[in-house]
Design a protein around this nucleic acid. Structure first.
Lengths: 195, 195
DNA sequence: GTCTATAGAAAGATAGAC
DNA sequence: GTCTATCTTTCTATAGAC
């Protein structure tokens, strides 16, 4: 009531990102139209261009925001010392964080090929930085004699693929609790590196 | 020269499938136009409709053909007896078969959401049948006391996700040979199930 | 900040000549 | 079997009223 003219910039902007994230995850970037996004937000198509210069930038910002937040969330956690503890932390963190954000995760994995070359390079760099977090744990554990890994880079990619795979089938309220899923995966990870 | 009028039905048909597979894998189903496919084949857009009723059927047939061939290829192999040998066979077969067909695999994983509900159900059924092949190996090994698996269904999905992940990074002529990759992955799989 | 209206391009699919 | 031509729809993005 005391609010000025119709200024919703701080509200509508995030709503646009939210709507785009939902629709891109459900139907794919190329299949979603600006009109669908506008309808989801409750504005007209033209109004979207107040919040993004174009559709490509909308996609890129979703992916960059997600990858930045992922890295930051991992690095903000208290660091353990023993490689085995760090590996357990990473495994459970990865599953939990990804299960909490299925849409953002899905987009980050599926829509890479719809980025321009420049934008792709920037996202790939962020992804690599995250993979390096796990790889350094494996390398430290290998050096300490805790793990038996023939190739740390390959093991890194194998473990991340396995953990991320949870998102393709896990449903809240399903047969297995989240904690149980995390524990089973952690045990598979642990055994797979010979710990 | 001795050939009749301009009848290329047997040649052009497969070429259309091939071109669609290449372009769908590279740019995504929704982003590829019928005109692009036609250009790749070397015909006009209208001519494509001699070989497919519509774009959706083109996608569905690619996925169905791939899944059928995958199942058949696995079942055509000689069956070993011991669960551990069967698991090794499956692991190496899965990696090798998938690395040989990166485009078909990519489409089968990425374009599920672009199928109509009916078509999706049919592909999901084929995928499930393939997963069941691995799950029965794990169940047999568990029953025989060879493996230690808390949940065979979960282990099935985790292993398939890990193995399929190879396709996202492996490049022919890269740092690791195919045989070495297969062996390393097999060892991780073996250890992850406690064998 | 949001709307209506529209420019301009391109899509999927079809018709009919050859 | 392939072509050209085209129907009809829909798209991204912009312009200008309010």
């Amino acid at each position: 009531m005391a609010r000025k003219t119709g200024s919703h910039s701080n509200i509508t902007g995030p709503l646009v990102q939210q709507a785009a994230q939902l629709l891109f995850a459900r139907h794919g970037f190329a299949a979603v139209t600006m009109r669908q996004i506008a309808a989801e937000v409750g504005v007209q198509a033209g109004a979207l261009y107040l919040y993004t210069p174009d559709k490509q930038t909308l996609l890129f910002n979703l992916m960059r925001t997600h990858m930045d937040a992922l890295l930051e969330a991992w690095q903000a956690r208290p660091h353990k010392q023993a490689p085995q503890d760090r590996l357990q932390d990473f495994s459970r963190f990865h599953i939990g964080y990804h299960l909490d954000r299925p849409d953002a995760v899905f987009i980050a994995y599926m829509e890479l090929r719809n980025l321009t070359a420049d934008n792709f390079a920037r996202i790939a760099k962020l992804r690599h930085a995250y993979e390096d977090q796990l790889e350094s744990i494996l390398a430290d554990g290998q050096a300490a004699g805790d793990f038996k890994i023939p190739d740390t880079r390959l093991a890194t990619l194998a473990i991340i693929a396995m953990l991320t795979g949870v998102n393709t089938w896990y449903r809240e309220g399903g047969r297995l609790s989240r904690d149980r899923v995390e524990r089973i995966y952690w045990n598979m990870v642990r055994r797979s590196v010979g710990a």
